[in-house]
Amino acid sequence: MGQIKVLPLWQDDTAGMDIAPDTSRATPAAAPPGDLAIWFFILAELLAFGVFFAAYAFGRAHNVELFNEMQKTLNREAGAVNTVLLITASWCVARAVEAVGRSRPATGARWLLAGIACGGGFLVVKGFEYADKFSAGINLSTNTFYMFYLSLTFFHFMHVILGLVILVALWVKTRQGAYGPADMNGIESGAAYWHMVDLVWIVLFPLVYVMR
C-alpha cells in the first residue's frame, strides 16, 4: 500500500518533477503584450500627439482670451459622452482579450462587437459636432483656436477610424477561432492600438474642452 508523503508548507512539492512552480506574478514579463512592432508604432503615435498637445497648450498661452471664449462654443457634454464611449470601448476590448485568453472566442467576439459599437458611437457624436460647426460657417481659417480644435480632433478622428478597422478585422478572425491562449499576438496587438486611441482622448478631452 502506497504512503502519501506529507510535505511541510515551506517545501516545494514540485521539486524533482517536470512541473515548474508558477513565477509569473513574481517575475515581470520582458516585453509588453502583442507584437513588439505595434509598440514602436504606438510610441511614435504618442510622440506625434504629444507634440500636438504641447503646440495647443503653448498656442493657448499666447491667445488666452480667444481660447477661453471659443472653448465656450464647444459642446462639452458631447465631449464627455465621447469619453464615456471610448473608455467603454476600451473596456470591451480588454474583456475580449481576457475571454480569448480563457479559450472563449465566442464571448471574445461579442465583447469586440460591443467595442466596435461604442467606437462607432464616438464617430456619430463627433460627426454631429463637426456638422454643427461647419453649418455655422466655422473652418480651419476661422481663428487659431478652431485651427487647433479641428486639426487636432480630426487627426484623432482618423485614428478612431483606423482603430475600428482593426477591431472589425479582429472580430472576424476571433469568430473564425484564429486566436486562443496559445496565439494571442494578433488580438493583443490590435487591442493595444485601440487603447492608445483611448489614452490620447483621455488627455485631449480635458485639454480642449475643459481646461481654462
Binding site: R25, P28, A30, P32, P33, A192
Partner: peptide, 13 residues
C-alpha cells in the same frame, strides 16, 4: 488605461 487595459502592469518597468 496603460497598466490595466494595455496590460503593462506585469511588464518590466
Amino acid at each position: 488605461v496603460a497598466l490595466d487595459f494595455m496590460g503593462l502592469r506585469g511588464v518590466k518597468f
